[in-house]
Design a protein around this nucleic acid. Structure first.
Lengths: 210, 210
DNA sequence: TGTACATCAGTGAACGCGCGTTCACTGATGTAC
DNA sequence: TGTACATCAGTGAACGCGCGTTCACTGATGTAC
């Protein structure tokens, strides 16, 4: 009992901020940002309805903190999925799309707000720093692909943004169920096949093939 | 005066459904789906707050009607932008991305709900028919590109879905301001350049160039 | 042409609900002495 | 070791607001006769 520093009903919590954030993410996972209110988050965390405002100011502040966490998770997820991937460069963009879509599926609550600046304090320094770090991971991966021979003459920032858009589009449409509605294979292999379809090594003109 | 069939205050409207839809789209354009309520739409249309429910049932019904209109507009927009485009096939995907992004920018309210099935009655027959028709226009365009020599051996449905995802990703990121935040050119020419970066005619290995 | 009647689009008052915000408060903590 | 005090995380009652929904109603329309 002494290991539990406080009994139920007491109000010194220790890590209420973290508990509130976790409750918010759980709510985002299950119901999306539309249904998230400070009162509902407090209810989930089992604390007074005024507590979230104490820590985050308002809804946008809470979502901003969740999105910042999301970008940190995202960066780690991409780094792990792409690190040491030694395949042919032509397989690397499908790998990126796959890792991106996998994150969106595993962290739907985070993903639902990370790219919705209108719901956030878009100029929050921690948020923008976390977002920039994740993009940098993506960009560096594209740069490695270029050094290995994939579209080496294309501007790196441009190609990184285009790769981002492709992975993002696939992930958004997949998360929403749009790909399933149009009969696509929505497994991770299917995701990779989508990226492969656009960038894969295919003769452009069959009559010119060797 | 006789041309105006009713005086102010009378309640036989003639096309209140259309007026409510227009008010809803205006609200979506300016404030997004989060801020749309039946009462606010009625306020904008200058009618009783109970009128929208009369015509659309609930919020999802109203948004579904708006999204269905959006898909019809989208289909027409794509058809016009892509019809008779006689350039090289390699220029055709950038053209599609450009038309897609242009629609998203011109119709932000429609675009904000068309691909958000969670906000809609996703199985509404009119909605799914309108969505399918728009995708068919996109797919047929990709098929023409393939017949003209672009990735002719790739499955048409797969390549169409991948092209869709690329155009969608670019448009979503552009609409949200994410591209601008990362220093991209957000003009329509910049949009085309993004698509071009991924699919454009570039030697994969510079040492193999003629 | 005139009357009676059914229909139905739209009204407006009333309801209960969940929300964010305010505010006086409680009580555990840490520090000064 | 003991006392006094400032701090501050969290409480809970109260508020006003906008929302969706309900419901009895009004009055224009179209049809039957």
């Amino acid at each position: 009992m002494s290991s539990k520093r406080r009994a139920v009903g007491e109000h010194f919590h220790g890590d209420l901020r973290g508990v509130l954030l976790a409750a918010a993410v759980g709510l985002l996972d299950e119901a999306g940002p539309e249904r998230l209110s400070l009162r509902e988050v407090a209810r989930r965390a089992g604390v007074s309805h005024a507590a979230p405002a104490h820590h985050f100011g308002d809804r946008a502040g809470l979502l901003t903190a969740a999105a910042t966490d999301g970008f940190a998770l995202f960066d780690r997820h991409l780094t792990r999925a792409l690190a040491g991937s030694g395949g042919a460069p032509i397989e690397q963009l499908p790998l990126l799309a796959r890792a991106y879509a996998d994150f969106a599926a595993r962290h739907p609550g985070h993903f639902a707000i990370m790219f919705r600046p209108a719901l956030l304090r878009a100029d929050d320094p921690d948020l923008t720093a976390a977002g920039d770090a994740a993009f940098e991971t993506l960009r560096a991966h594209v740069q490695r692909c270029q050094r290995a021979g994939w579209r080496p003459t294309v501007d790196n920032q441009l190609l990184a943004a285009a790769s981002w858009a492709l992975a993002h589009g696939i992930s958004v449409l997949r998360t929403q169920g749009s790909l399933a509605r149009h009969g696509r294979d929505t497994s991770l292999a299917g995701v990779a096949a989508l990226a492969e379809a656009i960038i894969g090594d295919q003769p452009r003109d069959p009559t010119a093939a060797a």
